[in-house]
């Protein structure tokens, strides 16, 4: 009944009360105003994010041809999946992927495990001087990857490093820049840079848990250890998933750190990581091939990060 009443009222009222023209029904601003708020971001976002992605895709389907022999003029034309075929047959591509896969499988879990332990310890009453530990771990985030790699390269260098000296006194002679060690020396720079950042994400999530949640467990005599692993870790699982996804993305994009270590170690090739390979190919003016490599890296990143999110959300029964 009320429904028809209001409808009738509206019909009657409509001609008398002129609807405000420039306002939308909810009293919100009109479309032009909304556009003025979002366009300053979306215009550069489209130009410098979406257009390059589209351009790389387009380039990756093109090939360079020449008219008549070696000295003919070159032109680009549609080449189907030719560039992708080249990428998949490129042994340097696969070895860079294998290298970075090994790197990620070891470095990401180690880094996140250390970050989680630190976050949990900072969240217990066991620790003193918490601010000092928190800041010293987060501080490397302020250091550019290039400079972090330069600092560590001095600590790796056989001539200058106090660490090498110290280990030498103990009878150890590690070659941080040797063929098998250099991948792990690079991994150490990444770990140094990002552990504190990940720790702080997990720590912030821990701080958001209401204390009452632990009270019952404490009254039941649960140890700090049990509270940490059975209550805290499951609650902050989404943050751990998030840090893992960011770490996977970061690992596949690795460039600056190995590029710096390459300046002092002949054991890092110009195609050490997939991104270095893409840059090396682009420097050789083979832009179409470089674009295809970038697209394949992006696809692998996408599949891994979404695959990981799906896997973890299924397991958690969400």
């Amino acid at each position: 009944m009320t429904d028809t009443e209001t409808r009738a009222e509206r019909v009657v009222a409509a001609p008398d009360v002129p609807r405000p023209r420039r306002r939308r029904p909810g009293g919100g601003p009109r479309a032009g105003t909304i556009a003025a708020f979002v366009t300053p971001f979306f215009l550069p976002f489209v130009l410098f994010y979406l257009v390059p992605v589209g351009y790389a895709l387009w380039q990756s389907f093109r090939v360079v041809r020449r008219t008549g022999g070696q000295y003919g003029t070159s032109y680009t034309t549609f080449g189907g999946f030719h560039q992708y075929g080249q990428v998949l047959q490129n042994s340097e591509f696969w070895s860079s992927i294998g290298r970075i896969g090994l790197f990620g499988v070891v470095q990401v879990p180690v880094m996140l495990f250390v970050a989680l332990i630190m976050a949990l310890l900072l969240d217990t009453p066991l620790l003193k001087a918490k601010a000092f530990f928190r800041i010293s771990a987060f501080m490397p985030y302020a250091v550019p990857g290039v400079i972090a790699a330069i600092m560590w390269s001095y600590l790796y260098s056989p001539q200058l490093s106090p660490v090498v000296d110290l280990l030498g006194h103990l009878g150890l002679h590690p070659d941080f820049l040797g063929p098998s060690a250099v991948l792990w020396s690079t991994a150490n720079v990444s770990t140094w840079l990002w552990t504190g950042y990940n720790m702080l994400i997990m720590f912030s999530a821990l701080q958001a848990i209401p204390q009452e949640l632990y009270e019952a467990a404490k009254l039941d005599g649960a140890s700090n250890w049990a509270i940490a692993w059975r209550i805290k870790v499951p609650i902050i699982a989404p943050s751990i998933v998030l840090t893992t996804v960011f770490s996977i993305i970061g690992t596949l994009q690795l460039y600056a750190e190995p590029a710096v270590l390459r300046q002092i170690s002949s054991n890092i090739s110009s195609t050490f990581t997939p991104n270095m390979l893409a840059y090396a190919v682009a420097s050789g003016n083979n832009y179409q091939q470089a674009a295809a490599i970038s697209v394949v890296i992006a696809l692998i990143t996408f599949v891994l990060s979404f695959g990981f999110m799906r896997l973890t959300s299924k397991r958690a029964g969400l």
């Binding site: 390059p52 351009y55 790389a56 380039q59 596949l252 994009q253 460039y255 832009y287 970038s294 990060s305």
Partner: peptide, 17 residues
């Protein structure tokens, strides 16, 4: 979606553009 796009992946196509 843009948060997940690494900026390094955009650098080379941006250079060409």
């Amino acid at each position: 979606g843009g948060v997940l796009v690494p900026t390094t992946a955009l650098a080379l196509p941006l250079f060409l553009l």
